[in-house]
Design a protein around this nucleic acid. Structure first.
Lengths: 162, 162
DNA sequence: TATTGTTATACTCTATAACTATA
DNA sequence: TATAGTTATAGAGTATAACAATA
């Protein structure tokens, strides 16, 4: 039975038109679901809501003194978005800014004691969330997906160029 | 050379901590880039900005009379988000609402003449955007990625379950 | 002149809840 | 009582531009 040009009443009567073969559509759709689920799991913590805070926290923890401009590249935010994210996290008492001695324009980021503790919690939550969210995906597919998306991400942010 | 616990100054000195192996992180990151790029390509058109309008338009065009509640499932929005999206598109003159005769609670969506024209443009733009954005990805990976994400999407929205 | 970071604005999305009307 | 859709609100993200200070 053709599904086109028919008034769809059930989800199985629908075809997605060209979106059926459009990678961008699936990335965007899966992102909505995975981000919503992650926010749910992070609810109540200082890094919940929006993209970027988890990365800032973990990188400030594992790379003490890292610069906002470097993290901005990795999370694809501009300076203004970055400044607001850091403001929030400083207000929440999880990271600290310190002017760099080498370049007084620049800052260095450090976690607070609370930030270090939060980083531990967040590592566990983020790891579990990703595992659980994709638990119905065959293991081989999961591995492939990780490999392919990691490579795409690295190309996008200009990682490990030459 | 170890990359950990070192003040990173260049993007190549950074490792992403647990995010390195976290599928959710890559989905979210690639999504930011792909969505920004798509918005850029749709700039000036009535469906630019945010997720969902493209899908609403194409489905209203290819499934005349489709219900908002069905599209809401496919784009994972709740009723209130759906109502606002449709409002915008009605204001822009690209779709129309009509009460259903079978169930007066429900509506049917149709494209206007402008909407049908826009749907043609958007099909071309969305297809090209996805192709161009992922042009540096090996063809085999692209195919795998599409297959894997399509399956994930279908599981998430509860498509084609017996 | 380019870079690091801040601030301000206008627009939009998100989640939530309260509401109407019909099945 | 459940479903279809609307409206309102508070909090947050996005894009843009103008700004200050330093390299």
């Amino acid at each position: 039975m053709s599904k086109k040009e028919k008034t769809a009443v059930s989800i199985d009567d629908v075809d997605l038109d060209i979106l059926e073969d459009t990678l961008s559509f699936y990335i965007r759709s899966v992102n909505i679901a995975v981000s919503r689920d992650l926010d749910e799991k992070l609810k109540g913590l200082e890094v919940a809501r929006g993209t970027g805070k988890v990365t800032i926290l973990l990188l400030a923890d594992s790379h003490p003194g890292i610069r906002p401009s470097l993290i901005a590249q990795l999370i694809m935010k501009d300076k203004s978005a970055m400044a607001r994210l850091i403001d929030q996290m400083v207000d929440h008492g999880v990271i600290m800014r310190q002017p760099s001695r080498h370049d007084t324009r620049a800052q260095e980021l450090y976690v607070t004691a609370r930030g270090a503790e939060l980083a531990r919690q967040v590592r566990a939550i983020a790891t579990a969330q990703s595992r659980d969210f994709f638990k119905d995906m065959p293991a081989g597919d999961k591995k492939e997906l990780l490999r392919i998306l990691r490579a795409a991400y690295r190309r996008i942010v200009g990682f490990g160029h030459d």
